[in-house]
Design a protein around this nucleic acid. Sequence first.
RNA 1: GCCUCGGUGGCCUAGCCCGGUUAGGGCAUCACCUUGGUAAGGUGGUGGUCGCGGGUUCGAAUCCCGCCCGAGGCUCCA
Length: 624
Amino acid sequence: MRILQLHSDFIEYKPIKKEIAMAEKAEEKMHKFEDIVVLFVAVEEGDNDAVAKKAIEEIKQSLDKLKAKRVLIYPYAHLSSNLAKPADALNVIKAMEKYAKANGLEAYRTPFGWNKQFTISIKGHPLAEQSRTFLPTEAKAEKAEEEKVSEAVKAEEKLKSTWYILQPNGKMMPVEEFDFAKHENLGKFARYEISKVRAVQQMPPHVPLMKRLEIADHEPGSDPGNFRWYPKGRLIKSLLEQYVTEEVVKYGAMEVETPVMYDFQHPSLADYLNRFPARQYLLKSEDKELFLRFAACFGQFLIMHDTQFSYRQLPLRVYELTRYSFRREKSGELAGFRRLRAFTMPDCHAFCADVKQAKKEFVTRFKLSMRVLEGIGIGKDDYELGLRFTKDFYQKNKTFLTSLVKLLKKPVLVEMWTERFFYYILKWEFNFVDNQNKASALSTDQLDVENAKRYDITYVDAKGKKRNPLILHCSPSGAIERVVYALLEKAYMDQQKGKAPMLPLWLAPVQVRVVPLSDKFQKNAEKIAQEIEKNNIRVDVDDRVLTMQKKVREAETEWINYIIVVGQKEIDSGILPVRDRKMGKIRPMKLETLVEEIKEETKGKPFKPLPLPKLLSNRPQFYG
RNA sequence: GCCUCGGUGGCCUAGCCCGGUUAGGGCAUCACCUUGGUAAGGUGGUGGUCGCGGGUUCGAAUCCCGCCCGAGGCUCCA
């Protein structure tokens, strides 16, 4: 049994919806209790009457110290991942109520089996918040692997935020007063963030696409949310990784590499972990407890802790492409490439002397992120800005915040916190809105005022004094997997609009396919392919024994950008009929012209050769 | 984690409600025929622990229980 004990000034709750068939009877109206100790209770497998009794006895002792005698028993499943069956849980909960009354407490109970809405105000004293675990027998006690309810989770329960729309002209209005008619996606994003709209019952389109296009698939031999990447997918991912890294290095970052696992007991890390509401993958190695990183922060901060630097060198930028970062998301929230347990995250930290410098750097990185997404093929019409800050920061920095919105040239969603609960005072993300009207963050940056101290990172200022820098946390593209998700979802949207779905040319696994009209022309086709290949273009030859029509059809379903059929006419004339996917027609052109066009379109982007045998007859089929 | 729906050769799927021949079809794959002018040429063959484990039954893809995996919803999203 797990109990979160909160001494509150008041709690209000309202039963909304029955979660299970055996839910108790309840009145669907607001209930309010004042000056009461709320017991959020999760009944676990094996809990029984004795556990209920023991729990109440211990709580009674604690309440005596608080001079409190009113309790509200509130069934709360989310404290445990090892819940008892509902019927057993209800019995235990009822037993608790019985024992509480027997112990002279004034006991109340919220209905079991309901989805409830609640508001709680917690008293400020040191003993107001306590968490407890009770196990069925003492023998099992040492197995109690306390799933810590982190400070961040508790903080979020108290978090109060208000929502606004901030326009490029600096005008900020409450979100409900804004007219979304001309800003459909922003409206979808706002609704998703604030009220969590119900999505249509449908598989996300990128999931079947990533399989059919042989990009990636679930790996059943691993943990959920871990993917296998086929050659075409690996090429796409690898090009994206290379591109983002090149752009961040151009911006001035120093690339490093740090471990994927860390000591749970390291003091800075343990403290930091407590600031994150997510769960980690844990591993035991001999007597050490390790966790897998969920971002590059750890490694980079530990490096910077041991690094000597002065104010003259600031801002200092450190970068790593984490392959992988791990977050043990709850199984029910995993969704294709949108949300994974292992993902590739470019993560760039900038260490700044003061707020003024941090703000300037923040703008540089905002522009960098826009540029990176643009280069990938995700323009500013494809995402919406979420801008989040504390009220205090807003009052001192209105002009600065508006300047970010001006860069984007469209209204943005604002979340304002009355107090600072996280380690940052300012944060933004670019959110992609997909075919299910769900929003997912791509690029993001944060202004961190807490971790330099926690990790004891210092620079020497002009007077020779040690100071903690401010730290910016930026991912200029967001997780690479999520970029692939956005590209595929975007292609699907195009298809819905009647346009041919496709990937940006520089990311297409096969850019040109040469189709010999019959096997008589195969040598000619291979020769043309060789000429194209010399120019760093990914080209293959469909030498299979199939009709030309069928080969064209397959090339189209593979989203190949240019298809060239080669027969006698082409050999005689030297003019190639190029089937252009983007323009949707066949364009007669010379080989050199096509090569020039492709080189121009892919200029400045990384290149990698074809990741598969050049002849289709030599190629295995990974899926379907 | 909870609730709902699903899992049948490499892929998509019929059959399941109402238990009973050799589990049917399409795509892919292999062989042969076809050598073509821009989105599916023809014929034949190979290929199956019906997600896994247990139960009910003379008999289970089909009914019951447990588990695993996927999707959707809730929750969560640093």
